[in-house]
Amino acid sequence: MRFDSLVDSVGHTPLVGLPRLSPSPDVRLWAKLEDRNPTGSVKDRAALWMIADAEKRGRLHPGATVLEPTSGNTGISLAMVCLQRGYRLVCVMPENTSVERRQLLRMWGAEVIFSPAAGGSNEAVAVAKRIAADNPDWVMLYQYGNPANAQAHFDSTGPELLADLPTMTHFVAGLGTSGTLMGVGRYLREHAPDVRIVAAEPRYGELVYGLRNIDEGFVPELYDPAILDARFSVGPRDALARTRELVELEGVFAGISTGAILHAALAQAERAVAAGIRADIAFIVCDGGWKYLSTGAYSGTLDEAARALEGQLWA
């Protein structure tokens, strides 16, 4: 396949069957390999769509500064796109993220401002909003509320999935900004309304939920529960166990958030088997495991690996 430039190659990722993890020939799991994007994550789609949308609206001009709160992957994707388009990128990232994420951000030319670990991404959003107020000429794309984030998946991920798997019965993805679930979900509601849309959200250690009061809570502006059929919270131990099964049984080397998604996908598979119904369950492999090697996710016992993730934003 030939493309005019790297950003033109975003998307069109493979959907691969998982014959050993699938419980039966009638209940099958399919992995959408989003690690096959230019920076190795699903966020390349949202980054490209948000930048293109801002350019179309005249919000971005050569030399502009882009600002974004991110736990890592969106920042890395934006850095890749901004570097090629001639924009400066400033990312606000919680300090409890993997060392590889900050190395990659800097490699692609982004500047990183750290926000305190306590409060996780909530705090990164709050810090970014303060910086944006102090720098009115900077452009905050704001992945949590930017419709172009979900639109990327409505325009690309959703159509790719349904074209590759017209018999799809379930779609399972991670819930962070909710962009993937809202975009693919809306596309499927229009074109394959019987598909169950299932969210898997990471359950972190207590530090991340350390708000001072409930009113500091956060629900992404993009999130619309009406698009979803179910939502599961997956802790680090289950996510790690599934991440390891995925590489050990199927050879797919994925990041830890993908393990959380697979855990929810397998729960749907078990329900289909118990109900005696056919199922084709597609789920998102958000990124590869490379960025998480330093966390110890792939070595030692599960308990050791889970302990190492305590307090970390692992998804």
Partner: peptide, 10 residues
Amino acid sequence: VTILPAVAGG
């Protein structure tokens, strides 16, 4: 039963 405050992901 698990109770948690809603926090940002991403």
